[in-house]
């Protein structure tokens, strides 16, 4: 049972990591909470479903297309809603409230267009999992684990070595100073939404394959993705992935003792505890002054 719980925790953590990492990229660069990030995954999942049900396009086209649509979605949300608000010097709290409104808008739009029932995506054959050390794991779950692992190293390398990655870190640390060195902050912010939302698109695809599709899927995971980012440290992109695994494992080992219904309660309580006691998370830098933005 231990190994099964471990695998369950790793799978759950991986799914949270898919959401948390994209969210973290957007947060570190823009310094506000983009709650509607979960909706990006939802929209991507429904897009995938729609394309798959109506057009006989091959998978190697459909998947990248979905990711592109997700990236475009995030980009447009930033361009049309957040940017105008930022231009008005809206505080990060206003942007947060706007993101909650966007989340409600898109989740309900999906429900309106597709209905409230669960849509099953039968792309790959399902079946009994593969047995490893007495625990079972399915091929899709293995794919999710590998993808997140690659994502982890990819993002780490990206922020440390790539030009854009380094620029994003600079903008994140000190937007004004970055501007004086000729960095176009707005362009960088655009890129953060594109990349973050693309990852959300990937998340949408994998979650759709693993858990099927319904209107609230993204938002529900967003709460846990956000918690994961807080635990790992919202200012640290790889940290958010670590936080995701901490959350996934805590939840799944936690319900060994508790009734399984308490799983979501664990996330909420962890979130509150971290926000109060260690808001910078495990890896975040304590910027010292809590009166400032995170």
């Amino acid at each position: 049972m231990f190994f099964q719980l471990l695998i369950n925790g790793l799978i759950a953590g991986s799914i949270y990591a898919l959401i948390a990492s994209g969210f973290s990229i957007i947060y570190t660069t823009n310094k506000f909470v983009h709650f509607a990030h979960g909706s990006t995954a939802t929209v991507a999942a429904y897009f995938l479903y729609w394309i798959f049900s109506n057009f006989g396009l091959p998978l190697y086209l459909v998947f990248p297309l979905t990711i592109l649509i997700a990236a475009l979605f995030g980009f447009l949300v930033h361009l049309l809603i957040y940017l105008p608000l930022k231009k008005r010097k809206s505080s990060s709290v206003i942007l947060l409230i706007a993101s909650l409104a966007l989340m409600a808008f898109f989740d309900n739009l999906m429900q309106l267009l597709f209905g409230a029932d669960v849509k099953i995506l039968s792309i790959f054959p399902h079946g009994k999992g593969i047995e490893i050390l007495g625990a079972y794991i399915t091929p899709i779950q293995i794919v999710i684990l590998i993808v997140v692992l690659l994502l982890f190293f990819g993002l780490w390398a990206f922020s440390k070595y790539s030009k854009l990655g380094k620029i994003m870190r600079a903008v994140s640390d000190n937007p004004e100073l970055a501007k004086t060195t000729g960095i176009n902050s707005i362009r960088v912010q655009h890129w953060s939404f594109v990349i973050g939302s693309a990852i959300a698109g990937l998340a949408g695809i994998l979650i759709a394959l693993e858990h099927n599709i319904e209107p609230a899927m993204g938002t529900h995971l967003m709460i846990q993705g956000f918690t994961a980012a807080v635990i790992g440290g919202v200012t640290s992109i790889p940290g958010s992935i670590v936080g995701a695994y901490v959350l996934g494992l805590t939840e799944n080992f936690g319900i060994w003792f508790l009734p399984s219904g308490y799983k979501s309660a664990i996330a909420f309580v962890l979130l509150l505890i971290f926000l109060i006691i260690r808001p910078q998370g495990i890896f975040g830098i304590n910027q010292g002054n809590r009166d400032q933005k995170m």
Binding site: Q4, H211, P259, S260
Partner: peptide
Amino acid sequence: DSFLQESRDLKAQLTKVK
């Protein structure tokens, strides 16, 4: 063991059963 009707992941409960 129990679950919320909106639950879409019952691995925890099923693991206990197994």
